[in-house]
Design a protein around this nucleic acid. Structure first.
Length: 255
DNA sequence: ATGGTCGCTGGGCGA
C-alpha cells in the first residue's frame, strides 16, 4: 500500500505530470495540494481512466486539495470541522481500512505577519480535529504540504532557515511537534535519519539543480500503523521534468 | 534573501 502526498502547484498545468507519475509510481492513495481548480473543473474522468477515484475540495486561483485512491473514498470530510475557513486546505476520507487526512497547511509568508497568525490558528484547529479523528480512526495517515521543515536535517542551510524564519520558526516547529504528540510519526523518519532529503525547491536560483531544498511535505502515520511502515521516501524524479511543480511527491509504504 | 521564478490573471499577489 503506497500512500503519497504531492503539491502539484496547479493541477491544470500538472495533469500530464500526475498521469505519468501515477503510471510510473503506481501509488494506491495520493493526497494532492494546490490543485487551484474549482470543483466543476476537477479532472476526475481523466484520473478514473487510470483507475483512481477522486474526492476534492477546490477553489479558484489558490489552494485546493484532493484525495485519489484505487478504492472509492468514503465518509468524506471537507474542511476542518467547526473551523470556518474561506480557503480550501483540508479534506479527509476513509480508504479501505485507512483514514486519510490531506492538508495544505498555510504558508505564513513571514514570521509575525497576519498570515503567520492564521497559520498558527489553523494548526491549532487541525490539532483538535486530529485528536478526534484518532479516537474514531486509529489507522490514521495525515499527509500533505505542511509548510514546516521538522528539523535542521530537513533544510539545506540551517543558518538561513533558522528559528526566526518562516517554515522553520520555533512556533511552527512546536505546532508540528504538538501534532506528533497526539500519536503520529513522521513516516520518513521511521525509515531513515539521513539529512538532505528534500521535497521542495524554490523555482528561483536554480535551487533544484543545486539541491537547495527543504523537506516540508510529510506523511504521518498513527501509532497503530507504525509497525506496518515498510518504506518511506521522496520521489524527486517528477521535479526534474519539464515545467515541473516546485514540490516532489513524498510517500510511505504500508504492508 | 532587499529576489533573479512560477501560476493565475490580466496588475499584482501568493508561494
Amino acid at each position: 500500500m503506497k500512500i503519497a502526498s504531492w503539491n502539484v502547484n496547479s493541477l491544470n498545468v500538472r495533469l500530464p505530470h500526475l498521469q505519468r507519475w501515477l503510471q510510473e509510481a503506481a501509488p494506491d492513495v495520493v493526497g494532492l495540494q494546490e490543485t487551484k481548480l474549482e470543483d466543476h473543473r476537477f479532472p476526475d474522468a481523466a484520473l478514473a481512466e487510470l483507475g483512481y477515484r477522486s474526492v476534492f475540495h477546490g477553489q479558484k486561483t489558490y489552494n485546493g486539495v484532493a484525495i485519489l485512491a484505487r478504492q472509492a473514498p468514503q465518509a468524506v470530510q471537507i474542511g476542518i470541522p467547526g473551523f470556518a475557513d474561506t480557503q480550501a486546505r483540508a479534506i479527509a476520507a476513509t480508504v479501505g481500512e485507512l483514514r486519510i487526512v490531506d492538508l495544505y497547511v498555510v504558508n505564513g509568508q513571514d514570521v509575525g505577519s497576519e498570515k503567520y497568525a492564521y497559520k498558527l490558528r489553523w494548526l491549532d484547529a487541525v490539532h483538535d480535529w486530529l485528536a478526534d479523528e484518532l479516537k474514531t480512526y486509529p489507522n490514521l495517515v495525515v499527509l500533505g504540504d505542511f509548510n514546516i521543515a521538522p528539523d535542521d536535517r530537513d533544510v539545506h542551510d540551517p543558518q538561513l532557515w533558522n528559528a526566526d524564519h518562516i517554515l522553520t520558526s520555533s512556533a511552527e516547529r512546536a505546532a508540528l511537534q504538538r501534532l506528533l504528540a497526539l500519536g503520529l510519526h513522521d513516516g520518513l523518519r521511521l525509515h531513515t535519519q539521513e539529512g538532505g532529503l528534500f521535497s521542495w525547491w524554490d523555482y528561483r536560483q536554480a535551487a533544484f539543480r543545486r539541491n537547495l531544498g527543504l523537506r516540508i511535505d510529510l506523511t504521518l502515520v498513527s501509532d497503530a500503523l507504525r509497525p506496518h511502515v515498510q518504506a518511506a521516501g521522496i520521489d524527486t524524479t517528477p521535479r526534474s521534468w519539464e515545467r515541473a511543480s516546485d514540490h516532489a511527491p513524498a510517500f510511505v509504504v504500508l504492508d
